[in-house]
Design a protein around this nucleic acid. Structure first.
Lengths: 147, 147
DNA sequence: TTGCGTGCAAAGGTTTTGCATGGCA
DNA sequence: TGCCATGCAAAACCTTTGCACGCAA
């Protein structure tokens, strides 16, 4: 039963920094890699995936399985201790992340537990939809274009 | 700009039938294929994928990108006109899928839209958590074992 | 010095695509 | 008879894994 010590490496820090900096929009592994390259840092793809998986396990990063295309997206949501009892809203169009801090949510979760016998996990649950500005943009393009 | 006529084929009907019959639990392409084989029908994998994609486009089937493993799951939700706004609860422990048909949900969604300027997409949003039986089992194992 | 982390390349698995053939209309 | 749909196999794709080397502690 060996204790697994964790080493602090340059790559690990770069990756964490990168997802923190891009937290307003979820990014694919490839996009994150590009970001890093723009900063002059090159990191192996395998290393990136390994670290992302670790961060997901730690709970500070959320993984969204291939929404638009096929590749998964990753997004920094902060340390578990810090994002207590709030949920996340993600815009399917622009990728914007919104923190939902609201009393109503607690009431809703309680209702689900009491009536539907299901305990929501606010760390894992992400609400998808459209933010207001994207709803408006889409409504507009529906009016102008038609197919 | 050619009109694209759609043909009615045996495979198409079989696939639609299959997703309809299995709508209580979302299934991967491989699982659907197995279902079909059990009924004595063999269909090409490519055909299955092509038709599933078409059904997703039509809006009668929802695709959940690789939740547990890597493969995506598909689920029949009915014609857009027919499926009322219900959400899905998925147990993180046993994988059980629960349909959440509830007035409170509508009220909640409306609150999100009005107050938080965000329109929920009930096709894409999945609530994760634990079903009651799994909560109980886990509580029990916490008592007996400790790690 | 120990052994975890990295990078590369290869493997793994899922989904898509090209092409010849089959079948609906 | 047109041409869409199918089936097969190959390709494309994303992600994981094996292995040797580098590097943190």
């Amino acid at each position: 039963m060996s204790l697994r010590r964790e080493y602090k490496t340059k790559q690990k820090e770069l990756i964490l920094d990168c997802v923190k900096r891009t937290q307003s929009t979820h990014s694919s592994a490839e996009q994150l890699l590009a970001h890093l390259r723009n900063s002059g840092e090159d990191i192996g793809l395998a290393t990136l995936y390994r670290n992302l998986n670790r961060l997901v396990l730690e709970g500070v990063v959320v993984k969204y399985p291939g929404l638009g295309k096929n590749s998964a997206s990753y997004q920094y949501i902060g340390k578990p201790e810090e994002h207590s009892r709030h949920y996340h809203l993600i815009c399917l169009n622009c990728g914007k992340l919104v923190h939902l801090d609201c009393d109503k949510v607690e009431g809703f979760a309680e209702h689900i537990r009491a009536t539907h016998e299901f305990t929501l996990d606010f760390k894992k649950t992400v609400f998808y939809g459209r933010c207001n500005s994207c709803v408006q943009v889409e409504a507009q393009s529906l009016r102008s274009a038609d197919d």
